[in-house]
Design a protein around this nucleic acid. Sequence first.
DNA 1: GTCAAATTAGACACCATTGTCTAAATCGTC
DNA 2: GACGATTTAGACAATGGTGTCTAATTTGAC
Lengths: 260, 260
Amino acid sequence: MKNTDKSAATARPAPGSCSPGPFSNAKGPDHRGQAFTRPGSGQCMKRNSILDAAARTFCRDGFTGTSIDLIAAEAGVSRQTIYNHYRDKEMLFGAVVDEIIGRMNAVLYGILATFPEKPDNLEADLVLFATRLGKNCMCNQDGEFLRKLIQAEGERYPELFAIWRENGPARVWSAIAARLARLAHCGALDIDDPDLAARQFMALINTDLQFCGMLGEKPTEKQIEDGARNGVRTFLRAFASRGNPSTKADPAVKPNMALF
Amino acid sequence: MKNTDKSAATARPAPGSCSPGPFSNAKGPDHRGQAFTRPGSGQCMKRNSILDAAARTFCRDGFTGTSIDLIAAEAGVSRQTIYNHYRDKEMLFGAVVDEIIGRMNAVLYGILATFPEKPDNLEADLVLFATRLGKNCMCNQDGEFLRKLIQAEGERYPELFAIWRENGPARVWSAIAARLARLAHCGALDIDDPDLAARQFMALINTDLQFCGMLGEKPTEKQIEDGARNGVRTFLRAFASRGNPSTKADPAVKPNMALF
DNA sequence: GTCAAATTAGACACCATTGTCTAAATCGTC
DNA sequence: GACGATTTAGACAATGGTGTCTAATTTGAC
């Protein structure tokens, strides 16, 4: 068999070479190794199944805690198929990380572009922005994956996550800082240090999500929205120019607290 | 040999049965298995060596990634000694978690008692409080251990960390909320929802530490202090009663930013 | 020094995992 | 329906980890 050359050549393809990986569009979380092999799908389907299952499993059990056999079973694929696509367990891990970082960055770009530019309805617009960020980045499956894996395996594979560390959070807060500076310049906000304000903005809209995470619960959509509202409200209490209409006192969102 | 009974009886002792575990007072991080067996030390020394090395190793490599042999080598102790003290790898892990949670809770109690009660010099006092919290809890070795391990193994061993989840962060912010409410009551602060304000206080003083963590760096003492100063400053911008002397505008601490 | 308890090195059986290999089954396309 | 490529199940050797056992050594207290 000549698959030795083939597999080496195919290993670690440029992310997105197939159709954009779904990660979460594979049907069930069932461990039965049959439901996934739908007919009418090509080898690309398998590839995505593998990436999908691998992401889930690596995230749940860590790199060392994950066995190829488990990934194969969860992807509804034979072990050999995995080795046909990816030379190594490490290669597979790298491919998963690359895939997710790529997807995450794309989403991030899109969301950052929606930061409110005009100071009309600033509070409402900021809440919308913060909610988008929470739902599609911080509380995502992808977001959870990166957070957990960077903490767990970041030290062992520094190169893998370097791109994310430099491009991910850093890009977010420097972009937000620029927008905040513009809002400050036009008088809507009163900000000395836009970089610091940007980081504090992120921290505030993440406050309740973090506490959810510490308690082991994944926040609901409503909690994300309420968290955004509460964070933005306090942010504007601190940084809105006095006398600005957007500073109108809105009562803190209470229902959110029922869980604590 | 009758050590079967003995070891079963000795496994998972109440934390602190020996002298309070040091975790970081064992000399070097050297992997040589000799430097630790100092004379003049009893079996209790070994116990601490084991707990210490296990904590370090579990934190670095995760539960599955850690082998008993590695812990033994790092503790300068034979494998059998570990099995004499702790029945299982799981038992050892549990003992480590218990030990650290116990130590952490003790420290926490102490720090919470130092929350400023009087509104004189509120900003300075809050900064001191926040700095203490940062140095002795969030950026501790123990703090790092709990953060990493809860993320990595929290799902697999829910019972283990349940005590921490309930007593740890929850206690902190509810205690802080009570103190903030008192400060609000006496007119120093303007707070609608003390629970929310407490969480936001924590989030703000952690802002820069988190971003350090995302970039893979452990924050320096100076960064912790600056982070506390910046966080408290914004917190008071949002929540200090207008006209209160403690709200005097202090320029944001810039040097902190040099790293970003 | 003596004696009991603790510690040690090393061997051991057992099991899980990795990565390879092969022959048979299946898929996609024509 | 036929053909080439892919996938599959299963066997396989190699490795490394767990937990037990034993016989020899060291330690600590008297």
